[in-house]
Design a protein around this nucleic acid. Structure first.
Length: 866
RNA sequence: GGGCGCUUAGCUCAGUUGGUUAGAGCGACUGGUUUACACCCAGUAGGUCAUAGGUUCGACUCCUAUAGCGCCCACCA
């Protein structure tokens, strides 16, 4: 006998172990089934699992389990990401607590510390991924720093270099002075800050700046060619007073760069520390003089300020400018966007440096004569890859079309070493150092997204034409958060189309972010984060999965809180108890004979069907198709909702209640329960698997069962449908007339005497002591009265029923019904409607009208009867 | 500055290509140990689907404005 309440904690770990040890998660590369592949977005090999991972695991596991049961060779490939900067920062922080920095430790010792940290973290994550019930293929687990993945990285780098897509250049880059490294454009975040804004006198013009300390070497003034104020200066060079005495400044007119409306309409440019100015300097072949170094300190060009931090210099320089009479005024609370590092929030310093870049505009043969950008846009435009929801197409196009060359070299230690060696001005690019003495490998590492961009294929053995690669690539779905659409999804498309000539995945499913009850982002500092592992401990993994998946639609954020998870814990318990009840019946009455036939045959022998049997089988057939279609169409929430409703409202509230009489049909109970378990298995794998094990007569594990298909046959849902409505009406009448639940009542029904077989059911479920059922009869006075379809209901309770109140209630309903009928009649009287609407719609409206009119007639009759 | 999303019952959210008398869970209220479940059962109340126009026979659903909230991108000399 099952326990009275389902205790997830008692079963989940053991079930997972059984699944894993049975190799149920393992994909067979030699199978001739069609493949269905998901590459798990690799969690960072730092820290622990959070809700972002949890929702990703829940959604992917549901898809994988569904397709696996549907007969696909399903591969869900797990792994972890070395997360270059994030991991290095984390370990640096730990070291800082010990009072050490990485330079003290040296590169190799530092890397060993990181490896140690990562190994520990990976263990934690692996366990937590298991806790969620993830049915991923652990035999194929990968890590971005595995040797073969590193090989793939070097291979792609070499090929791109050979194709001229990767080049080394002296260009302006985003520089984080704390990380001591470059950042990609999208790794820069912006925070709004209030800061003083300075207006400086620069010869005959006024220039505005928030960063006076970058202005030491400004020697060019840009104005608009049509600007009357400055026309006379254009093309001229003049001597002006500046920070360290007189300098020569040149005036250039540029219609695109200068805006007459903005500020004074004139600006100086700082080529070495501004992206816009760098491009201008290139355009006009101007000198690029660095002012600030890679530690955020002033260079000798700053004279007396050399060696100072940027902020210190700013403060002191402003004083000097004031003294020199060059400071016109200061806006103390100017609000502007400060660019900061997305990993450590340190202000980003744009500066010029020699780095490796990927050229996004160069057309190459490997992409059919197209550029990276063009091909990456094309695969979405042509529908080779579908993004769900599709509104992200536009966002993707905008990003891709405006993409600038991607800076891929990082000056941190943790990551893939750039596969380039130097010797006396010679350069070698490849997998290994060339033979001979004196070659030195590039000190830098690659942007972490470079290797994760290869994830769908590097994990399958590429560049070797492995059986895995051939069978499982391109992958089927990339399911991930929309917040990494650019970082990762876009870059996978870029790199995969180039390296493999194929797309990385057919669909991109973007889930939203999980927020707290107030809609705030969950964060450590707010302390509002929900720990998935704690929730699993409390409510079970199934409940957590459901709570994240139902009511959640792609691309939209959702709020999560304990009460919600508790609600789905209640659902798992409901399922458990329904099963407990059914199993109890089998224990009492014996199992149906042909259980294999019952759970597998397209047309099982279910014995003689009662009206209730027909009803539930019809509902079951409908929910099978609907849930399957919903999951196939990635409408996961809808599938969950459908099954929730079916189990609770149809199966438990009605079918099981109707089965409490003498009319139990063990075959139908067995079939319906077994089928429901299968349908729910992708969503709530643990509880269904446990019940499957407890259900007598099953063999093997539920995870390996096939997804159900509707059974053959037409089932009459109408008869019990009407009985259900009658029971509902009687219950309502009882409640409205405040009849004590314990008090049994007598009921008289007129009409549909053919349903008399359900008399016992009505009596039991509506608490009726005496039921008189006739085809017709005379009116009853002193009774409560109602009507359902063509059945009149009377509860003759002299004294207990307030006849006037009853009349008023019926009158109110008649009034509403009248309005409804009027609306329908008007609609059908409208020629345009009848002409233009589809015939089926018109017919449906006619049907509604005639039903409403029939009911109206009955209602009126009932009023008269009172 | 450009773009996107959201606005549906007190709260959290569904609502597939326009055709339901607009749904769910939680909460509220009334009442219940009816041989699986109080992590339960029965019943009730509660919404002019943000606002204003428009298209259509018909709009929660499509279009245009407006407002509030949120997000993304760009950028400010």
């Amino acid at each position: 006998m099952l326990d009275k309440a389902y205790d997830a904690k008692k079963y989940e770990d053991a079930i997972y172990k059984r699944w894993e040890e049975s190799d149920a998660f393992k994909a067979n590369v030699d199978s001739d089934k069609p493949s269905f592949t998901i590459s798990m977005p690799p969690p960072n090999a730092t820290g622990t699992l959070h809700l972002g991972h949890a929702i990703m695991l829940a959604l992917e596991d549901i898809l994988i389990r569904h397709r696996r049961m549907k007969g696909y060779e399903a591969l869900w490939l797990p792994g972890t990401d070395h997360a270059a900067i994030a991991t290095q920062n984390k370990v640096e922080k730990i070291l800082a607590e010990e009072g050490i920095d990485r330079e003290q430790l040296g590169r190799e010792s530092f890397l060993n510390r990181v490896r140690e940290y990562v190994a520990n973290s990976q263990d934690i994550i692996r366990n937590q991924v298991r806790k969620m019930g993830s049915s991923c293929d652990w035999s194929r687990e990968r890590y971005t720093l595995d040797d073969d993945l590193n090989y793939a990285v070097n291979e792609v780098f070499s090929r791109m270099h050979k194709d001229g897509l990767i080049y080394r250049g002296h260009r302006i880059v985003n520089w984080c002075t704390r990380c001591g490294s470059t950042l990609a454009d999208d790794e820069v975040e912006y925070v709004e800050v209030q800061a003083p804004f300075y207006y400086l006198k620069y010869g005959p013009v006024t220039i505005g700046t928030a960063r006076p300390e970058t202005k030491f070497a400004d020697k060019v003034v840009i104005v608009h060619p049509d600007d009357k104020r400055y026309k006379k200066y254009i093309g001229k060079e003049m001597e002006i007073d500046w920070i360290d005495g007189k300098i020569k400044a040149k005036f250039i007119a540029d219609a695109e760069a200068a805006d007459m409306e903005m500020g004074s309409g004139a600006m100086t440019i700082t080529p070495a520390h501004s992206f816009v100015d760098f491009d201008l300097a290139k355009k006009y072949k101007l000198e690029v003089l660095p002012i600030i170094d890679t530690e955020g300190k002033m260079l000798p060009i700053a004279g007396e300020f050399a060696g100072m931090d940027v902020l210190e210099c700013r403060e002191k320089l402003v004083k000097k400018l004031k003294k020199l009479g060059l400071l016109e005024r200061v806006d103390e609370n100017y609000s502007h966007n400060l660019s900061v590092c997305y990993r450590c929030n340190t202000p980003v310093e744009p500066l010029v440096s020699e780095q490796w870049f990927i050229d996004v505009n160069k057309k190459v043969k490997a992409l059919g004569g197209k550029s990276i950008k063009e091909r990456s846009v094309e695969v979405i435009k042509d529908g080779e890859i579908e993004i769900i929801p599709s509104r992200f197409d536009k966002i993707y196009f905008h990003w891709m079309e405006n993409l600038r060359d991607w800076c891929i070299s990082r000056q941190i230690w943790w990551g893939h070493r750039i596969p380039v060696w130097y010797k006396d001005g010679e350069i070698h690019v490849g997998h290994d150092a060339p033979k001979g003495q004196g070659w030195r490998q590039d000190d830098d590492t690659l942007d972490t997204w470079f290797s994760s961009a290869l994830w769908t294929f590097s994990t399958l053995g590429w560049p070797k034409e492995t059986p895995d690669f051939k069978k499982f690539h391109p992958t089927s779905v990339m399911e991930t958060g929309y917040d990494i659409l650019f970082f990762w999804v876009a870059r996978m498309i870029i790199m995969t189309t180039y390296a493999t000539g194929t797309i990385p995945f057919e669909k991109v499913y973007l889930h939203g972010l999980i927020r707290d009850k107030e809609g705030r982002k969950m964060s450590k500092s707010l302390g509002n984060g929900i720990d998935p592992i704690e929730m699993i401990d409390k409510f079970g993994a199934d409940a957590l999965r459901m709570s994240m998946v139902i009511g959640n639609t792609p691309g939209n954020d959702m709020r999560l809180y304990e009460e919600k998870i508790m609600g789905y814990r209640n659902f798992t318990n409901k399922l458990w108890n329904a099963s407990r009840f059914v199993i109890g019946i089998f224990e009492e009455k014996g199992l149906p004979a042909d259980r294999q036939g019952i759970t597998k045959a397209p047309k099982p022998d279910l014995g003689k069907l009662t009206a209730a049997d027909e009803w539930i089988l019809g509902k079951l057939n409908t929910v099978i198709s609907a849930a399957d279609e919903a999951l196939t169409g990635f409408r996961i929430s809808e599938a969950g909702q459908l099954l929730y409703d079916f189990l609770w409202n149809d199966f438990c509230d009605w079918y099981l209640e109707l089965s409490k009489g003498d009319k139990q049909n063990p075959a139908v109970l067995y079939h319906t329960l077994a089928t429901t378990l299968k349908l729910l298995h992708p969503i709530t794998p643990f509880v269904t698997e446990q019940i499957w094990a407890e259900l007598p007569g099953t063999s093997g594990m539920l995870i390996t069962e096939q997804y159900p298909e509707p059974i053959k046959g037409d089932f009459d849902a109408g008869s019990i449908g009407l009985v259900i409505e009658l029971i509902g009406a009687i219950r309502r009448m009882r409640a409205e007339n405040k009849i004590e639940p314990a008090q049994k009542i007598a009921v008289t029904l007129y009409g549909r005497k053919d349903l008399e077989g359900s008399k016992e059911d009505i009596m039991r479920l509506a608490r009726v002591s005496e039921l008189t059922w006739k085809d017709s009869g005379k009116k009853l006075s002193g009774a409560a009265a109602d009507v359902v379809k063509d059945v009149q209901i009377f509860i003759p309770l002299e004294g207990l029923v307030d006849t006037e109140k009853e009349k008023a209630r019926l009158q109110k309903e008649i009034e509403q019904l009248g309005k409804y009928i009027a609306g329908l009649s008007a609609k059908l009287a409208n020629k345009n409607f009848v002409q233009n609407a589809p015939a089926a719609v018109v017919e449906a409206e006619r049907q509604k009208l005639s039903e409403a009119e029939a009911r109206m007639k009955q209602m009126k009759g009932q009023v008269g009867n009172l």
